[in-house]
Amino acid sequence: MMLKSALFTLLSLSLLLAGEAKQYGQKLTLEKTTPIEAIDKAPESFVGKTVLVEGTVVDVCKKRGCWIKVVDDKSGSSLLVKVKDGEIVFPLEARGKTARVEGVFQKLESTMEETVEHAKKACKLEGKEFDPATVTKPDVSYRLKALGAVIK
């Protein structure tokens, strides 16, 4: 009898916790969200700014939980959210959930050698053969360096 009630309490508690929002890193300070679509359309104007974005988590770093890809449900625009390894660890279970992330928007400019290395790694991951002719210029990418996030 006692075992049954303990199991019931545990189950109820886990069900309650399952739907609960989870905080990662620092607490969010901004209230107004910036649409991911707006950032996607004019990334240069957001570089260095602290923004709060909201979207669905479509992918998570499967080895270290050190990044998530957040998508704006309406436009399909996406944003890569990166955290310092170990400081915040996003669980794989975050996929499909809604994330509110606050962070500093960054521009990353790779050298030609780095771009070639990235392309080689990407081909290896996808099981494709790397063709050096496909890399014509150094890569420029943007990401949000997350300070804090809430996922529910």
Binding site: T56, V58, D59, K69, V71, D73, K74, G76, S78, R95, G96
Partner: peptide, 14 residues
């Protein structure tokens, strides 16, 4: 459990 448009021609189904 859900799905979202993840790109112009892509959908992610959870």
């Amino acid at each position: 459990t859900g799905y979202v448009r993840s790109d112009r021609h892509r959908f992610m189904i959870f």
